[in-house]
């Protein structure tokens, strides 16, 4: 990893209580402050050489702090050379209650046979707006897995465009969005199957409470010659209040004739029979509902392959569902 030239910065002056400073086992941390990598102040740019295997997980912690313009825009670049392997965690936080607007672009390029695992964790305050465009290209035989965990944030917009350009590529996208209060979260996916013999799947799940609004818009586009591909898309939503709104738009556009594709969306409430069963054993209503919501979230959380990270995320999701983030003033409350 010497080539990356980034500073391991555990002694960050960012904030004393910031729990994310404690790295997970086998994880290297890197801070991005207001769009610039700490130490270099330039946007994140990572390039793995052909065959390079990153043993450590790279955790990129992006924070917005006071003393910077409220609106910033920047572009990150993650390039994975042929046959390289990497695991990346991208976290974003807001340290002060300023009305931040962050416009971010992330290019992710997988050359042939690269294997990349990305977890995106978004935890910002209620006044923050964060728009991210992920431009992804996947080469032949490459394997990409990305999970988006949108835990908190005023207005979060994730747009993902994937171009599958090489045969045998496998792209797995998943997302979990937890939205309450007046928060808005939008996820859109454009999955372009440009070549034959590839697999893609999308699983997005949301839990919405209060007056929250979420959107999911996904399209699977299969080019005329992209035969024998498999592409799946699912969006499931749990509405906990009568005022919460979900707009979901699953779409397929297929120009090849020998493919397996599916798409589906559901909107529902907590199951009453399950709830009664849990309560009849003495689990109080509130706890029973948390158990049900955790169960709902589980199919996305289980996609996180790093066991320690998964456990951390499960804890965070549970805390979030218990409403422990709602009094969030800064990132000193261990919500990461």
């Amino acid at each position: 990893m010497g080539e990356l030239n980034y500073i391991y910065a555990p002694e960050s002056p960012l904030t004393e209580q910031f729990r994310c400073r404690v790295p997970m086992k086998g994880t290297r941390q890197l801070f991005v402050v207001n769009g610039g990598v700490q130490g270099t102040r330039t946007p994140l740019s990572i390039s793995l050489e052909k065959g390079q295997v990153m043993e450590e997980v790279l955790q990129v912690i992006s924070v917005r702090t006071e003393g910077s313009p409220l609106e910033i825009a920047y572009k990150n670049n993650l390039h994975f050379g042929e046959g390289s392997q990497a695991r990346i965690v991208l976290c974003s936080h807001t340290f002060t209650l300023d009305k931040f607007v962050t416009d971010e672009e992330v290019d992710i390029t997988l050359d042939d046979r690269a294997v990349v695992d990305v977890v995106v964790m978004q935890n910002e305050h209620n006044e923050a707006t964060h728009n991210t465009r992920f431009n992804i290209t996947a080469g032949a035989g490459s394997v990409l897995k990305i999970s988006f965990l949108t835990l908190h944030g005023g207005n979060i917009d994730n747009k993902v465009r994937v171009d599958i350009n090489g045969e045998g590529a496998n792209v797995d996208l998943s997302g979990l969005y937890l939205v309450d209060g007046k928060q808005m979260v939008s996820n859109s996916v454009e999955m372009n199957h440009n070549v034959p013999n590839c697999i893609s799947s999308q699983l997005y799940k949301g839990v919405l409470d209060n007056d929250a609004v979420a959107k999911f818009s996904g399209i699977i586009y299969v080019k005329q010659d992209a035969q024998k591909i498999e592409a799946y898309q699912a969006n499931h939503n749990l509405l906990l209040s009568e005022r919460a709104k979900i707009h979901t738009e699953p779409q397929l556009e297929i120009y090849a004739d020998d493919v397996k594709c599916s798409h589906g969306a559901t909107i529902g409430r907590l199951d009453e029979n399950e709830l009664f069963y849990l309560r009849s054993r003495g689990v109080p209503m509130k706890e029973a509902k948390i158990l049900q919501q955790m169960a709902f979230a589980y199919s996305v959380l289980e996609k996180i392959s790093n066991a320690e990270l998964r456990e951390r995320m499960e804890n965070l999701v549970e805390k979030r569902l218990r409403g422990e983030f709602s009094n969030c003033k800064d990132c000193s409350k261990n919500c990461c």
Binding site: L291, Q292, A295, S299
Partner: peptide
């Protein structure tokens, strides 16, 4: 009829 609860 015991209830099935996937995920719990």
């Amino acid at each position: 009829y015991p209830i099935e609860i996937p995920g719990v």
